[in-house]
């Protein structure tokens, strides 16, 4: 798969991955952005194990980032995300990323990638769309 080729039939699935979000990963995320340590004291007891939604988005994109091998200097210019359901600590999540658009404008390649995350019971967790400008 070469995501940088213009000769593709779109949409094109770029990655399909499964991962478990454990407390170590969430702690790594919380530490890096210096937010309140997990679990959040502000959440009601029903949601005390809810993973921060942006942590799910960040961790869901890990596999894509590895696979794409984007050229250095690639710019992330836009992001959409819809949080549909909360995910709890130690959930096993599946993430599918799909290339929706691959066009070149004035020597800049524009990639639009959709991602969908669901849990082990096929319950949708989030969907999103990432726009990248690359050379």
């Amino acid at each position: 798969m070469n995501p940088f080729s213009s000769n593709q039939n779109l949409p094109l699935i770029l990655s399909e991955s499964q991962y478990k979000i454990d407390s170590d990963l969430v702690t790594m995320y919380s530490t890096s952005i210096k937010c309140e340590p997990f679990p959040f004291t502000g959440f009601s007891s029903q949601y005390k194990n809810t993973i921060p939604p942006m942590a799910i988005l960040t961790l869901s994109l890990r596999d894509l980032v590895s696979k794409l091998k984007l050229p250095h200097g690639t710019l992330h210019t836009g992001q959409e995300v819809e949080f549909i359901n909360p995910a709890n600590l130690n959930s096993v999540l599946s993430c599918t990323t799909t290339l929706l658009q691959n066009t070149v404008r004035k020597s800049i390649r524009v990639l639009i990638i959709k991602l969908s995350v669901e849990d082990e019971n096929k319950i949708p967790i989030l969907t999103g769309k990432t726009t990248l400008f690359t050379s």
Partner: peptide, 28 residues
């Protein structure tokens, strides 16, 4: 960029608690 975006999500969580994780949408 996603690191910076985390702070908007933190702001939304701070204001809306779990409503953000269950119904939130963001376009930036």
């Amino acid at each position: 960029g996603m690191m910076a975006l985390s702070y908007i999500s933190e702001m939304m969580t701070s204001a809306f608690d779990t409503k953000w994780a269950t119904t939130g949408k963001l376009k930036v």
